[in-house]
Amino acid sequence: MTTTATPTTSAPVETGASPDRAAVRLAISSTPRPPVPGRVSTALTFGWRGMLKVKHVPEQLLDATVTPVMFVLMFTYLFGGAVAGSTGQYRDYLIPGILVMSVLFTTVYSGVALNTDVTKGVVDRFRSLPIWRPAPLVGSLLGDTVRYVIAGTVIIVLGVALGYRPGAGVVGAVAALALVVVFSFGLSWVFTTLGLLLRSPSAVLNSGFMAIFPLTFLSNIFVEPATLPGPLKAFVDVNPISTLATASRGLMEGNARVGDVVEVLAVAAGLTLVFATLTVRLYRSR
């Protein structure tokens, strides 16, 4: 499903340059301590760090989006005719759902990134700074939000390229994307919690996908639940991801039910409340 990003590491190259003693002494003595920056500014700085990572390690974002893109192409053209009668009809059903899947997949990487920071020792430095303690967590998720928007946009653009035309136009697409991103912000706290509990980044990646993969499949993203056997249908109906996919379709078409949107927002708030608290507590006590 996903290929684990293996950064290409070229052999370390030692530069001939050595520290210059006089310059070192000058550099050490020259900077007095400025006042500690505020919470917002600190969190935004961590958000900037997240952006830099998208630039330097685009593989992560790519990993999470390639699978959904493959699903769109495969399912639309392979099963579309059989499932929905025509390729076009199935495409219109699938795209708003795959938008959900694509962004939810990306949330797993929030946990992977946090675990990487912990195992590499970067977190120790952050925690020894006189800054607002949850700032690295909040800032990283702000940065991740941008990644979610990119992952979602890729799917919408792909859909349009394949002939999908949302009934509510650009406004509908933006609204659907916004709702999905808000939900993902809530869900990503689950993975940051996992990121602080597990031992290695690959453990977070594997267990994260082990959870998110079946949860997205056992929803109404791919098929209408009407044909499913009883217990399965019951699960799909209560799965919040189904509600999110339904709301996403509704917003795209301009006929969303307020109840669905409210339910999605409530679940996101609940996840944030529980798992953000857990994450911050685990982070503080490390």
């Binding site: 950064p7 301590r33 400025p34 006042p35 500690v36 920056p37 500014s41 600190t42 700085t45 900037w48 760090r49 830099l52 990572k53 330097h56 390690v57 920071d117 590499k120 020792g121 970067v122 977190v123 120790d124 430095r125 952050f126 020894s128 700074l129 006189p130 800054i131």
Partner: peptide, 30 residues
């Protein structure tokens, strides 16, 4: 506010370049 830590693991961010690492710390320190 008055100490700094250089941990056993060389606590720098591997996915950023050298300059970005120092700018990040500078911004965080105000």
């Amino acid at each position: 506010r008055s100490v700094s830590l250089t941990g056993q693991l060389a606590s720098v961010d591997e996915d950023l370049n050298g300059r970005e690492n120092l700018v990040l710390l500078g911004r965080l320190l105000g």
